[in-house]
C-alpha cells in the first residue's frame, strides 16, 4: 500500500460562527432567492417562484429546528419538528425537480440530520450550546476531576495488572471484582455529575426564559457556562474510563 502523506487537520474547523446578538433570527428570511432574485420572505421557499432555499451557513441548530436555546427540550416536539422538516427537505421529494433544487435539498437535509442528531442527545446539545455561546468547543479538554486524580492513576495500574494476569486464575478473579466495584463507583459518580448537569441546564433555561440583560444575569450566565464546561469535561473523562473498563472486564 502506498504511503500517504498525512493530511494536516485544522482543529478549529466546524465551528459554528458565533454572534453576540441573542435575537438573531432566521438568516434565510432576509436573503435573495437564488433563482428569481427576489427577496425571500417565506421560511424555506421563495414565495414568488416557489423554489426551495438553502439553509444559511449561519443558521445554528437550535434555529434550524425551531427551538429556543434551551437545554431541556421536549424530545417529542423536537422529533415532530425533525419529521416535519424532513418532509420539507428530503431529496425523495425533489426527484422531479431541477438539479439546483436537488442539490439544495440534499445539503439542507444533511444539515437538518446533523442538527437533530446533535440536539437529540442532552450531552451533545449542551456541548453544542457551549460552543455557540463561548465559541470554542474544542477547548473542552477531557480532564479528570481533581479529587479523583490519584484514584484514577491507581485504577489504570490495576487495569494493566488485570490485562497482564492469567485469566481464570484466582488473582485475575480478585482484580476483576475490584475493577467491577470501581466501575460501579465511577458509574455513580457519572450519574451524580449528570444530575448536577441537569440542575445547571435548568438554571440556564430559567435565565434564558427571563431574558434579562443585567450585569447580574451576565455573571450568572458566565457562571453556568463555566461550571457546565468543567462538568462536561469531567463527565467525558469518566465516561471514557468506564468504557475502557467495561471493554476490558466484560
Amino acid at each position: 500500500m502506498a504511503q500517504t502523506s498525512c493530511p494536516f487537520l485544522l482543529m478549529d474547523h466546524d465551528q459554528p460562527s458565533t454572534h453576540s446578538d441573542p435575537h438573531r433570527q432566521l438568516q434565510m428570511a432576509r436573503s435573495m432567492c437564488w433563482h428569481c432574485q427576489s427577496e425571500v420572505t417565506g421560511e424555506y421557499f421563495c414565495e414568488r417562484c416557489v423554489k426551495v432555499q438553502p439553509v444559511s451557513k449561519e443558521t445554528d441548530y437550535f434555529t434550524c429546528l425551531g427551538s429556543p436555546r434551551r437545554l431541556t427540550l421536549d424530545p417529542k416536539k423536537l422529533e415532530a419538528k425533525f419529521y416535519e422538516l424532513s418532509r420539507t427537505f428530503h431529496p425523495d421529494f425533489y426527484q422531479t425537480k431541477s438539479t439546483e433544487e436537488q442539490t439544495i435539498s440534499l445539503s439542507n437535509a444533511a444539515v437538518l440530520n446533523t442538527a437533530y442528531r446533535t440536539l437529540r442527545d442532552p450531552i451533545q446539545r449542551a456541548e453544542y450550546l457551549l460552543a455557540l455561546e463561548t465559541g470554542s468547543v474544542k477547548d473542552i479538554r477531557t480532564s479528570p476531576p481533581a479529587d479523583l486524580f490519584e484514584e484514577i492513576l491507581e485504577l489504570q495500574d490495576t487495569l494493566e495488572e488485570y490485562r497482564a494476569s492469567d485469566r481464570g486464575s484466582d488473582q485475575s478473579h480478585r482484580i476483576r471484582v475490584t475493577l467491577q466495584t470501581e466501575e460501579e463507583a465511577l458509574e455513580r459518580r457519572k450519574e451524580e455529575m449528570e444530575s448536577q448537569l441537569r440542575r445547571l441546564f435548568a438554571d440556564w433555561d430559567k435565565l434564558q426564559d427571563a431574558g434579562e440583560v443585567t450585569s447580574a444575569a451576565r455573571a450568572e450566565r458566565d457562571r453556568i457556562l463555566k461550571q457546565m464546561r468543567d462538568l462536561l469535561s469531567h463527565r467525558t473523562y469518566i465516561n471514557n474510563i468506564i468504557n475502557d473498563l467495561a471493554a476490558t472486564i466484560n
Binding site: 493530511p7 494536516f8 487537520l9 485544522l10 478549529d12 474547523h13 466546524d14 431529496p91 440534499l106 445539503s107 437535509a109 444533511a110 444539515v111 440530520n113 446533523t114 437533530y116 442528531r117
Partner: peptide, 14 residues
C-alpha cells in the same frame, strides 16, 4: 448516522 449526512474538514499544509 441518518443520511443524507455530511462532514466538513479543513485542510492545510505543514
Amino acid at each position: 448516522t441518518t443520511i443524507p449526512a455530511s462532514a466538513k474538514e479543513m485542510f492545510t499544509t505543514y
